[in-house]
Computed example of a mutant assay.
Amino acid sequence: MPTELLERITHDPAVMGGRPCIRGMRVTVGTMLGLLAAGHPVEEVLELYPYLERDDVMAALSYAAWRVEEVELPLKAS
């Protein structure tokens, strides 16, 4: 994922319980994905959240794509 997009996604335990958010705001990546998955076009999402930029939406999509590719391996018991 391009670094400039990744920098738009923040994690802060004091904001939305530490869930990934857009630029430290109270808009989560999950909210963005939910709106897009429900069929709302990017332009409409930007109208609903006028303080967001198109790159914020693209960052949420890129972050989600990156996270789905991660593989979690179980830890072996000691």
Score class of each variant (00 low, 15 high):
77 A>F: 02
11 H>Y: 14
20 P>Q: 08
4 E>T: 10
45 V>M: 07
68 V>S: 09
46 L>R: 07
75 L>Y: 00
38 A>P: 00
29 V>W: 01
7 E>W: 07
55 D>Q: 13
46 L>H: 06
13 P>N: 05
25 M>C: 10
12 D>M: 02
72 E>G: 09
42 V>N: 03
28 T>A: 06
33 L>D: 00
31 T>R: 13
42 V>K: 14
50 P>T: 05
66 W>Q: 13
39 G>M: 10
37 A>S: 15
43 E>R: 12
68 V>K: 11
31 T>H: 10
14 A>H: 11
9 I>G: 05
37 A>H: 13
39 G>R: 04
59 A>C: 07
49 Y>K: 05
54 R>T: 02
49 Y>H: 12
43 E>N: 08
27 V>Y: 01
37 A>I: 06
73 L>A: 14
66 W>P: 03
7 E>L: 15
1 M>P: 14
32 M>R: 00
13 P>C: 08
71 V>D: 07
35 L>R: 05
7 E>A: 14
26 R>C: 13
70 E>T: 12
4 E>V: 09
20 P>I: 05
69 E>W: 10
49 Y>M: 13
56 D>N: 07
16 M>D: 03
8 R>V: 03
29 V>I: 08
41 P>H: 05
73 L>C: 07
56 D>Y: 02
31 T>A: 14
53 E>F: 13
70 E>H: 12
42 V>M: 10
52 L>Y: 04
63 Y>K: 10
3 T>S: 15
37 A>V: 09
11 H>K: 06
53 E>W: 07
63 Y>C: 07
61 L>C: 15
65 A>S: 09
49 Y>Q: 00
14 A>Y: 09
36 L>I: 11
67 R>I: 11
74 P>C: 01
